[in-house]
Design a protein around this nucleic acid. Structure first.
Length: 631
RNA sequence: GCCUCCGUGGCUUAGCGGUAUAGCGCGUCAUUGGUAAUGACGAGGUCCCGAGUUCAAUUCUCGGCGGAGGCUCCA
C-alpha cells in the first residue's frame, strides 16, 4: 500500500497509508487529541476530520479553543440551531447561517418568533447535542443539489450562484447546503447559547422579504461561554444611556427624537472637550469660525448635497424660499473662504468649526448618543496646494494620534476609495486617493483599504478607536475633497502669480462631540479622569457646626476653577460617602472636629482608597496639578 | 423605513377587565452622627397618546408616538 508523509506543526513527520483519515492520524497521536479536535488544517486549508489524506501534507489539528476551530464549532452550532428550529417550526424554510464575530446566526423564512419560542429551541438544541450525531459531508452535482432543495427557493437561488463543487452536510435527518467544514458530531457543540431573535432581510436588501433571524453563540467550553456572557453584562453596566441618566449628563425627549438635551453635568464634559480641542488646535495653527445652521437651498444645489444627501436633510420654508438645515459644515466654509482672495503664502490654511449639524437618520437606527440626528462636529477645513497634501496628512495623523492617546485609545486606520455614487472626475479621485495613501505611509501607519466606501465627494481615512473593553468605534476621519473647491470655484494666487484651485481636506478628530462623549462614558465606565469629571471634589460635613469650614474650603477651591460641592445634609457620614462614590466623585473630603482644628481635609477616593488627612491648601494644589496633567 | 419586544409616580419595578405594589429618591420631624444605606411619618401616579370592544380598560384590539435589539462579517 502506498505511503504518504504527514508533517505536524512541531515539524515532526510520520508516515501513513494513503487514504488515511485525519481522525485516524489524530488517534495515532493520542485519543485525547482525536476526541477534542473539531477540524483539521491540511496545507493551510480547514477541513473535516473525516477528510481522507491522499498526499504528503502538513496538518494541524484544530481544537475549539483556537480561532479557526471556534469558527467551525460555531458554524456547526448554526446547523444544530437550524435543525432545532425545524423541530419547532416544521414548515420554516432554511436560508443562510454564517459565523459572525461573537457567534453565529441563522435566517429562516417563517412566521415571526416570540420570546417563548427561545426555550423550546434551546431544549431541542440540547437534545441534538446530547445525541452526539455525526456530521457527514457529501459532494453532489448541481442537479442533485437542486433536487434536494427543490422546495426551498432561497437554497435554489444560492445553488444557482455557485461555481465548482457543491457540498451538503447531514447530521441525523437534517441536511443543509454548506461548504463546511464541520465538527465530528453534534456533541462537540456543548457550550452554546441562543441570544435573541431579529428580523433581517433576505440578502440584506430591504426590497426583499423579511426573514426571521436567530442569533446564538458557542464556545469551546462552558467557562469561555460564561466569560463571554459576563463581558456582555459588563458592557451593559457601562451602557452610556444608563450612566448618562445616573450621572445626570443628558436626556432624550420624544419632542425631538434623536436629539440630545444636555444637562449641566453633561455640558461640563462637553465644554472640557471643547476647551481641550481649542488649545490643541491653536498649537496646530488653526483659526476658528462659525457658520449658520440654516442656509438657502441654492447653496445645497451648488454643493451637490441636494443631489446626494437630500433624503437625510431637514428643510424649512422662510419668506417663500426653500432653506435647508445644514447636514455638513463645508458649504458654509466655502462661502467664508470666498470672502476674500487668498495667496499660497497662507497655506496650509487651517480653519476649524465646531458645527452643529442635523441629519435625518432612519428612526430605527437611532441609539443613545451613538447615533443621533443632531450633533456637533469638531470640523475643520484645510486649504492647500497639491504639493502639501502628503505632509499635511501626516501632520494630521500625528495630531489625531496625540488626542486619542490622551484618552488611552488604541486605534486602527482604514482608507476608503471611490463609491458608486460620487462627484468629480477619475483624475481628481486618483490624485486625492494617492495623496491620502502617501500621507499614511509618511506617518508610518499600517492601514486597511475599503474599496468603494468613500464619501461622495472624495476618498477618506477613517480612525477606529478601541475602548477599554475591546469594542471598536469609528471616530476621526480625514477626507480629501477636490470637488467642492471646483463647484465653488475656489482660487488662490500661486507663487508665480497665476490663479490656481486649492486642494481641500475636511476632517474631524472626535467625530462628533456627542458620540465621542458616549464612547468616553463607556470607555471609563462613568469614572472620568479628574480633568473631565463634572464632579471633581465633594466635601462631606460630619455635623452642622463644620458647615462654615466646609464652605470656606469650597470657596477656596472654586476660586481656582475646581468643581466642588458641599454635602451638608444631616445624613450619616457613611451614607454621604456611599453616595459620593456612587456618583463617581474623584475626591471625597470629610471635614469635622480635627480637620477644622488643623486646617485639613480627610481624603478618600471613589475607588475606596483612603488617602488620609492633608492640609487643605496643599491638597488643592495636588488637585490642580492633576487637572493640569489631564491624567 | 421594516421585524420582534417594551412603555406603570423623578428612577428601578410588582400587578391586574372593577383606577395600582415595593424600593430608591423627595418632604417633615427626631437624631449632630467620623467613612458604602439612622429611624418615624408624609407627599407624589389622567398606569405614553388616540380610537374601538365592554356595564366597566392601566389591563383586550387597532392606530400613533417613543424606547430596546436587529436588518449581507453570505451555501
Amino acid at each position: 500500500m502506498a505511503k504518504i508523509k504527514i508533517s505536524f506543526p512541531d515539524s515532526s513527520k510520520k508516515s501513513f497509508d494513503k487514504g488515511v483519515t485525519a481522525l485516524s492520524v489524530a488517534n495515532s497521536i493520542s485519543e485525547g487529541l482525536a476526541r477534542e479536535s473539531v477540524a483539521v488544517e491540511v496545507d493551510g486549508e480547514t477541513q473535516d476530520l473525516s477528510t481522507k489524506l491522499n498526499k504528503d501534507s502538513k496538518i494541524n489539528f484544530l481544537k475549539s479553543t483556537s480561532e479557526k476551530g471556534l469558527d467551525v464549532l460555531r458554524h456547526s452550532a448554526a446547523h444544530v440551531l437550524a435543525e432545532a428550529v425545524l423541530k419547532v417550526r416544521p414548515k420554516a424554510k432554511l436560508t443562510i447561517g454564517p459565523v459572525i464575530e461573537d457567534g453565529y446566526y441563522y435566517d429562516f423564512d417563517t412566521e415571526p418568533f416570540h420570546p417563548e419560542d427561545m426555550p423550546k429551541i434551546e431544549s431541542e438544541m440540547k437534545k441534538i447535542v446530547d445525541s452526539k450525531t455525526p456530521f457527514k459531508r457529501r459532494e453532489v452535482s448541481k442537479k442533485e443539489a437542486e433536487k434536494i432543495f427543490k422546495n426551498n427557493k432561497y437554497k435554489l437561488e444560492l445553488i444557482n450562484d455557485l461555481k465548482g463543487k457543491i457540498s451538503v452536510y447531514t447530521h441525523g435527518d437534517f441536511t443543509d447546503l454548506c461548504v463546511g467544514p464541520h465538527v465530528q458530531h453534534t456533541g462537540q457543540v456543548k457550550a452554546f447559547k441562543s441570544m435573541k431573535f431579529a428580523g433581517a432581510y433576505w440578502r440584506g436588501d430591504s426590497k426583499n422579504k423579511m426573514l426571521q433571524r436567530v442569533y446564538g453563540t458557542a464556545f469551546g467550553d462552558k467557562k469561555e461561554l460564561r466569560k463571554h456572557l459576563m463581558m456582555l453584562e459588563e458592557a451593559e453596566k457601562r451602557d452610556h444611556r444608563k450612566l448618562g441618566r445616573h450621572l445626570d449628563l443628558f436626556s432624550f425627549h420624544e419632542e425631538a427624537a434623536g436629539m440630545p438635551f444636555w444637562h449641566p453635568n453633561g455640558m461640563v464634559l462637553k465644554n472640557e472637550l471643547i476647551q481641550y480641542w481649542r488649545e490643541e488646535h491653536k498649537k496646530e495653527g488653526y483659526t476658528e469660525i462659525e457658520t449658520p445652521i440654516i442656509l438657502n437651498k441654492k447653496l445645497w444645489m451648488s454643493s451637490g448635497h441636494w443631489e446626494n444627501f437630500r433624503e437625510n436633510m431637514y428643510f424649512s420654508k422662510i419668506d417663500g424660499d426653500d432653506y435647508a438645515i445644514k447636514p455638513m459644515n463645508c458649504p458654509g466654509g466655502m462661502l467664508l473662504y470666498k470672502e476674500k482672495s487668498h495667496s499660497y503664502k497662507e497655506f496650509p490654511l487651517r480653519v476649524g468649526e465646531l458645527g452643529l449639524v442635523h441629519r435625518h437618520e432612519l428612526s430605527g437606527v437611532l441609539s443613545g448618543l451613538f447615533r443621533v440626528r443632531s450633533f456637533t462636529q469638531d470640523d475643520a477645513h484645510i486649504f492647500m496646494e497639491e504639493s502639501q497634501i502628503t505632509t499635511e496628512i501626516a501632520r494630521l495623523i500625528a495630531f489625531t494620534d496625540r488626542v486619542y492617546k490622551l484618552f488611552g485609545f488604541e486605534y486602527s486606520v482604514e482608507l476608503s476609495t471611490r463609491p458608486e455614487k460620487s462627484i468629480g472626475t477619475d483624475k481628481q479621485w486618483e490624485l486625492a486617493t494617492k495623496g491620502l495613501k502617501e500621507g499614511i505611509k509618511k506617518a508610518g501607519l499600517a492601514y486597511e483599504v475599503n474599496e468603494g466606501d468613500g464619501a461622495f465627494y472624495g476618498p477618506k481615512i477613517d480612525f477606529h478607536i478601541r475602548d477599554a473593553i475591546g469594542r471598536t468605534w469609528q471616530c476621526g476621519t480625514i477626507q480629501l475633497d477636490m470637488s467642492l473647491p471646483e463647484r465653488f470655484d475656489l482660487t488662490y494666487v500661486a507663487e508665480n502669480g497665476s490663479k490656481k484651485r486649492p486642494v481641500m481636506i475636511h476632517r474631524v478628530i472626535y467625530g462628533s462631540l456627542e458620540r465621542f462623549i458616549g464612547i468616553l462614558i463607556e470607555h471609563y465606565a462613568g469614572k472620568f479622569p479628574l480633568w473631565l469629571n463634572p464632579r471633581q471634589v465633594r466635601i462631606l460635613t460630619v455635623a452642622d457646626r463644620f458647615n462654615d469650614y466646609a464652605d470656606k474650603v469650597r470657596v477656596d477651591y472654586e476660586s481656582l476653577g475646581i468643581r466642588v460641592e458641599v454635602d451638608d445634609r444631616t445624613e450619616t457620614i457613611s451614607k454621604k460617602v456611599r453616595e459620593a462614590q456612587l456618583d463617581y466623585v474623584n475626591y471625597i473630603l470629610v471635614v469635622g472636629e480635627k480637620e477644622l482644628k488643623d486646617n485639613t481635609v480627610t481624603i478618600r477616593t471613589r475607588n475606596n482608597e483612603v488617602v488620609g488627612a492633608k492640609d487643605y491648601k496643599a491638597f488643592k494644589n495636588e488637585v490642580l496639578e492633576e487637572i493640569k496633567k489631564k491624567k
